[in-house]
Amino acid sequence: MGFKLLSKLLVYLTASIMAIASPLAFSVDSSGEYPTVSEIPVGEVRLYQIADGVWSHIATQSFDGAVYPSNGLIVRDGDELLLIDTAWGAKNTAALLAEIEKQIGLPVTRAVSTHFHDDRVGGVDVLRAAGVATYASPSTRRLAEVEGNEIPTHSLEGLSSSGDAVRFGPVELFYPGAAHSTDNLIVYVPSASVLYGGCAIYELSRTSAGNVADADLAEWPTSIERIQQHYPEAQFVIPGHGLPGGLDLLKHTTNVVKAHTNRSVVE
C-alpha cells in the first residue's frame, strides 16, 4: 500500500471513529477524501466538511520552486461564519470567499490569524475590503508590521502568557507558548472536538522541520505538551499544512522538532 493511500485511509478511519463516538456532533463529509496538494491548482481553494458547521479550507501556493498546501478553518456561528487564517495570499483568499459563498452561503463576518507569517495573514486586506472584521493577538499584529505583512485590524486580548485561553464565538483560542513562531495560536472547536494546530503542528508525513527561522526550538516541545494537557479530548487535529489526523500529530511534531534540534547540535 502506497504512503499517500495509507495517509488518506488514516484520515478516513479517524473521521469514521469520530462519527461513531459522537453521532450528534459529527456529520463528516462523505463526498470524498481530504484534498491534497496535487489536486488543488494554485489560485483555487477546496472546502472539506469535518463536522456539522465545521470545515477546513485548503489552498496551495508556490514557494521556492515548489507547491505547498495550506489549511485553515471555518466555523459556523449562528447565521454567520468565523474564518481562521487566510488562504495564503490575496488571490487565494478572494477564491476562498467565493467558494464559501458557493458552498455554504453564509457571510464571513470575523477572521482570526493564528500567527504573523504570510500563509496566515496574506489576504487580510481582501477580507477587510469584503467587510470582514480581522483579528490577531497584539504580538501577531506587531510582528506582521515588522515583517511588512498585512496586519489584522483588531487585537485579541488575554493571550499574552503561555497557557492563556479565551473564548471567541464558537471557538476557544489558546496560546501554548512559542513553537513554530513566538505568537502562534491554537484554535479548538469544543462542539466538535476539532483542534486546529496551525503551523505549530505537523502532518504525519512530514519528517523535516522546514521553516524554523522564527521558531523557538527549545520551547516548542513544552508548548505541545500544554496543548495535549489542555485538549486531551480532541479527536480531529488539523495541521497548518497537509493531512489531518488525531492527537498523534502532536507527538510526531515533537519528535521531528527534537530530531532537528539534535542534528543542529551535532553539526
Score class of each variant (00 low, 15 high):
Glu150Gly: 13
Ala19Lys: 08
Leu159Ala: 04
Ser139Ala: 13
Val266Leu: 11
Gly105Val: 14
His180Ser: 00
Thr86Trp: 00
Ser22Tyr: 06
Val187Asp: 03
Ser30Phe: 15
Leu82Asp: 03
Gly2Leu: 12
Glu172Thr: 14
Leu243Cys: 06
Glu267Lys: 10
Ala133Ser: 09
Leu249Gln: 02
Ser70Pro: 03
Ala179Thr: 04
Trp220Arg: 02
Asp183Trp: 01
Ile186Gly: 02
His180Cys: 00
Ser208Ile: 13
Tyr34Ser: 15
Leu195Phe: 04
Val189Cys: 01
Arg128Phe: 14
Gly169Val: 03
Leu143Gly: 12
Val11Glu: 04
Val108Lys: 03
Leu250Arg: 01
Gly123Val: 02
Gly89Asn: 06
Glu225Trp: 07
Val124Gln: 05
Ile238Val: 06
Val37Gly: 07
Trp88Ala: 01
Ser208Val: 11
Val166Asp: 04
Ala95Gln: 13
Val265Cys: 06
Val54Asn: 01
Tyr68Gly: 05
Ile238Pro: 02
Glu172Leu: 06
Ser113His: 15
His252Asn: 14
His180Asn: 01
Ser161Cys: 11
Val121Cys: 06
Glu145Thr: 13
Gly210Thr: 05
Arg206His: 11
Thr134Gln: 00
Asp52Leu: 10
Ala51Lys: 06
Lys102Gln: 08
Ile20Ser: 07
Ile100Leu: 09
Glu267Asn: 05
Asn71Phe: 00
Gly158Arg: 12
Leu106Thr: 13
Glu233Gln: 13
Arg76Ile: 08
Val121Glu: 01
Ala95Asp: 11
Asn92Cys: 03
Leu9Tyr: 08
Thr114Cys: 00
Val194Trp: 00
His115Val: 00
Thr253Gly: 01
Ser16Trp: 07
Ala21Met: 15
Thr254Tyr: 11
Glu80Trp: 10
Ser16Gly: 09
Ala215Pro: 04
Val11Tyr: 10
Leu204Lys: 13
Gly131Arg: 08
Arg263Lys: 14
Gln103Asn: 13
Thr253Pro: 01
Ala200Asn: 00
Met1Ile: 04
Gly53Phe: 10
Leu83Trp: 01
Gly65Thr: 06
Thr14Val: 11
Asp125Tyr: 11
Asn262Thr: 07
Pro107Gly: 13
Ser191Met: 10
Pro152Val: 05
Gly53Lys: 08
Thr261Ile: 06
Leu185Glu: 01
Ala66Thr: 08
Leu250Glu: 02
Arg46Lys: 06
Ser7Asn: 05
Lys8Leu: 10
Gly78Met: 09
Ile17Leu: 06
Ala25Ser: 14
Val265Gly: 14
Pro221Val: 14
Val187Arg: 01
Arg141Leu: 13
Ser223Pro: 04
Arg120His: 04
Thr36Asp: 14
Val42His: 14
Pro35Asn: 14
Leu249Glu: 01
Ile17Pro: 04
Val108Phe: 02
Leu247Glu: 11
Val67Phe: 11
Pro35Asp: 11
Cys199Thr: 02
Tyr34His: 14
Thr114Leu: 00
Asp125Gly: 09
Gln61Gly: 11
Ile50Pro: 04
Asp118Glu: 10
Phe236Cys: 08
Thr153Leu: 12
Arg263Ser: 08
Gly163Ser: 08
Lys4Gln: 07
Asp183Val: 01
Pro69Trp: 11
Asn71Tyr: 02
Ser160Glu: 11
Asp77Lys: 06
Val37Pro: 08
Ser181Trp: 02
Lys102Ile: 15
His154Phe: 15
Asp118Gly: 08
Gly105Phe: 15
Ile50Cys: 02
Ser162Phe: 15
Arg141Ser: 11
Leu6Phe: 10
Leu73Lys: 02
Asn211Asp: 06
Ser7Ile: 11
Gly177Ile: 01
Asn255Asp: 13
Ile201Trp: 02
Ser38Asp: 09
Ile40Met: 07
Lys102Glu: 09
Val126Asn: 06
Arg142Phe: 15
Gln49Val: 12
Glu101Cys: 12
Arg142Met: 13
Ser193Val: 07
Ala111Gln: 12
Leu81Pro: 03
Leu250Gln: 00
Val257Trp: 03
Tyr48His: 07
Pro239Phe: 00
Ala178Cys: 04
Leu5Asp: 11
Val54Met: 15
His241Gln: 01
Leu185Val: 08
Met1Phe: 03
Glu150Cys: 04
Gly177Lys: 01
Thr86Ile: 03
Ser193Phe: 08
Gln235Glu: 06
Leu250Met: 05
Asp29Leu: 13
Phe3Lys: 10
Ala129Leu: 14
Val108Ser: 04
Phe26Leu: 10
Val67Tyr: 07
Lys258Arg: 14
Gly72Pro: 02
Thr60Ala: 10
Tyr196Ala: 13
Ile50Thr: 13
Leu204His: 14
Glu101Lys: 11
Ile40Ala: 12
Thr114Met: 03
Leu83Thr: 05
Ala130Pro: 04
Phe174Cys: 01
Tyr202Lys: 13
Asp118Met: 05
Ala165Lys: 13
Ala192Ser: 06
Trp55Pro: 01
Leu143Met: 11
Leu9Thr: 06
Leu195Gly: 00
Val54Asp: 02
Ile201Ala: 05
Ala129Phe: 05
Thr182Phe: 10
Val124Pro: 03
Thr109Pro: 12
Ile17Asn: 04
Val189His: 14
Ala98Ser: 13
Ile238Phe: 07
Ala209Asn: 05
Glu99Gln: 09
Gly131Thr: 14
Pro152Thr: 10
Tyr231Pro: 01
Leu6Ala: 07
Leu5Ser: 07
Glu267Phe: 06
Asp85Leu: 00
Glu267Arg: 11
Ala59Val: 12
Arg120Val: 03
Thr153Val: 11
Ala90Ile: 13
Asp29Val: 09
Thr182Lys: 06
Ala66Cys: 13
Val266Thr: 11
Val171Pro: 03
Ile84Val: 14
Glu145Leu: 11
Pro221Tyr: 08
Ala19Pro: 08
Ser191Gln: 09
Leu24Ser: 08
Lys4Tyr: 05
His117Phe: 00
Lys251Glu: 08
Tyr48Asp: 11
Ala213Leu: 13
Ser161Gly: 14
Pro35Lys: 08
Ala111Val: 09
Ile74Tyr: 03
Arg167His: 05
Asp125Arg: 09
Asn92Phe: 00
Pro35Gln: 14
Pro190Gln: 06
Ile40Asn: 15
Tyr68Gln: 12
Gly210Met: 06
Ser16Pro: 09
Thr86Gly: 02
Pro69Arg: 08
Gly240Lys: 03
Gly65Lys: 13
Asn184Lys: 02
Leu247Ile: 05
Glu267Thr: 15
Gly163Tyr: 10
Phe3Gly: 05
Ser22Val: 11
Glu147Trp: 12
Gly65Trp: 10
Glu150Gln: 10
Gly169Cys: 04
Ala136Glu: 03
Val256Arg: 05
Gln103Cys: 15
Glu39Gln: 11
Ala192Asp: 07
Gly197Glu: 01
Leu73Met: 15
Arg263Met: 06
Arg263Ile: 08
Ser181Lys: 01
Ala90Met: 12
Glu33Pro: 11
Gly246Ile: 03
Val37His: 06
Asp118Tyr: 06
Gly53Met: 10
Tyr68Ala: 14
Gln228Ser: 15
Ala178Ile: 07
Ala19His: 03
Ser139Tyr: 11
Thr134Glu: 03
Pro176Gln: 01
Pro107Asp: 12
Ser56Asp: 13
Val257Ala: 08
His241Lys: 00
Ala192Pro: 10
Thr36Ile: 08
Gly32Ser: 08
Arg110Pro: 04
Arg263Ala: 11
Thr93Met: 04
Leu195Met: 11
Gly158Phe: 15
Leu143Thr: 10
Gly72Leu: 01
Arg142Ile: 14
Pro69Cys: 06
Leu83Lys: 02
Ile104Cys: 01
Gly2Glu: 07
Gly78Phe: 06
Ala179Asp: 03
Leu9Pro: 10
Leu217Met: 05
Arg226His: 14
Ser22Arg: 07
Thr36Tyr: 12
Gly197His: 02
Ala259Thr: 11
Arg46His: 15
Glu145Tyr: 15
Gly242Leu: 02
Ala259Trp: 11
Leu24Gln: 09
